[in-house]
Amino acid sequence: MTNTLKSSYQKAPYKLSGNGPRNISVLKEAFQNIDESLESDIYGNGAIIEDFQTKIAKILGKEEAVFSPSGTMAQQIALRIWADRNDNRRMAYHPLSHLEIHEQDGLKELQQINPILLGTADRLLTIEDIKDLQEPVSSVLLELPQREIGGQLPSFEELEEISQYCKAQGIALHLDGARLWEITPFYEKSAEEICALFDSVYVSFYKGIGAIAGAILAGDADFVQEAKIWKRRYGGDLISLYPYILSADYYFDKRIGEMASYYEAAKKLAERFNACDGVKTVPEVPVSNMFHVRFEKPLAEVETILIGIQDKVGIGITGYLQNKSETVCAFEVSVGDSIMEIPTADLENVFENLKK
């Protein structure tokens, strides 16, 4: 695949996914009403970082929280703590976990933790997968929603079963909640109610929230104090993190109340894709603001179709296609503010062209 599709997507005035362009305006907007004399955080201390950590810990229903520059850092730290506490360097997660496919084996190389892959790559892991483990593990990581298979989710009842089983077995249960905020409408549960099932929780502030970067790792007080030590060891205590924190706080307050709107818009958008011949979404009915769109055509053919529509209509559908087979390709949609700005007639035009 050439860069033509990406270029076509970037030039389109409107986008199906996201919360708008990721440029300097994101930071400028977050800082527009900040007092210039406000003191920055210093090496993990100060009102800016401490107040935000307390705010998010309360929302998640956890005793304490620590702000981290990245989710990669936060989750490797969490899993190291559980490995130490249980004196066991084995843990378990889905075959398509972010730690397995996007982090260059950081967990294995930096922490010498050996992941066991639960279930198969084409489906959610289940309570039965955990019960079928042939050797003890220190922790189990659940990603909600499971991004690489279209943002699918288990039932809340199964989550409760998993939580109860892990607790009974002395297995720490960690939540990869990068998109936690986006699943609350489907479960009809608060973030606190979901997080109550987990011993530790990571949440992101740049995905559905749209801040520049940053993450929170939350748990009980002892866990977080250990995490702060590991954060220093990882180089995560920059002299100041306030650009990330102020941005995260601003966009959290701006968008946390919009998650139900994003979810409803995603369901309507998926319905339109599914009405096109040779196109289907995974899942068919989204369970969050994200889903995958699969075309039953070769990648090169789909790329040509999408470039034509994007250039003609001015709506960016995607800048990246993933090959699933010789005759199937796919891309991800994650609904945010951007779709709300698209003129109705232009959106209709996209699907009229896709149906041709």
Rank of each mutant, 00 (worst) to 15 (best):
154 P>M: 09
352 E>Q: 14
94 H>Q: 12
68 S>C: 14
319 G>M: 03
10 Q>D: 15
351 F>P: 12
251 Y>K: 03
225 Q>F: 02
263 Y>K: 10
216 I>H: 15
330 A>K: 01
88 N>R: 11
265 A>H: 03
353 N>V: 05
236 G>D: 06
326 E>H: 03
293 V>Q: 02
151 G>L: 03
38 L>D: 00
222 D>A: 09
347 L>N: 10
293 V>A: 10
56 I>C: 09
194 I>Q: 04
7 S>I: 11
334 S>A: 06
165 Y>R: 08
102 H>C: 14
325 S>K: 11
321 L>M: 02
217 L>D: 14
200 S>P: 08
69 P>M: 13
317 I>W: 08
191 A>F: 05
204 S>M: 09
353 N>H: 07
239 I>T: 08
9 Y>Q: 12
1 M>W: 05
57 A>D: 07
337 D>E: 12
308 G>I: 13
233 R>G: 00
70 S>P: 02
13 P>L: 12
264 E>N: 13
216 I>A: 14
122 D>M: 01
235 G>A: 15
316 G>N: 14
65 A>R: 13
348 E>P: 00
40 S>C: 07
242 Y>E: 14
177 G>H: 15
202 Y>L: 12
99 L>N: 07
41 D>K: 03
233 R>T: 02
276 C>V: 15
13 P>A: 13
185 P>Q: 10
252 F>P: 00
100 E>W: 01
122 D>V: 07
3 N>H: 05
158 E>G: 02
87 D>S: 15
298 P>V: 07
257 G>I: 11
32 Q>Y: 08
89 R>E: 13
321 L>A: 11
229 I>V: 14
260 A>E: 08
318 T>C: 12
201 V>T: 14
269 L>F: 01
123 R>V: 03
90 R>Q: 15
340 M>Y: 15
15 K>P: 01
73 M>G: 11
91 M>Q: 08
96 L>D: 02
137 V>E: 06
114 N>H: 07
92 A>N: 09
315 I>H: 05
265 A>Y: 00
196 A>C: 05
52 F>S: 07
344 T>E: 04
259 M>F: 09
199 D>N: 15
120 T>K: 14
124 L>R: 03
60 L>S: 06
316 G>E: 06
153 L>P: 00
200 S>I: 11
243 P>H: 01
56 I>R: 12
280 K>D: 00
152 Q>H: 01
206 Y>G: 00
53 Q>A: 15
67 F>W: 11
331 F>R: 10
316 G>L: 06
121 A>D: 09
136 P>Y: 14
293 V>D: 08
191 A>H: 04
69 P>W: 06
83 A>W: 00
64 E>W: 00
106 G>A: 04
156 F>I: 13
65 A>N: 13
273 F>I: 07
31 F>C: 01
7 S>E: 14
82 W>F: 10
64 E>F: 00
165 Y>T: 05
72 T>M: 11
160 E>C: 06
221 A>V: 13
220 D>Y: 04
209 I>D: 01
78 A>G: 01
134 Q>R: 13
58 K>L: 11
6 K>N: 05
351 F>R: 06
213 A>H: 08
231 K>T: 01
230 W>P: 03
36 E>H: 08
184 T>E: 00
1 M>F: 15
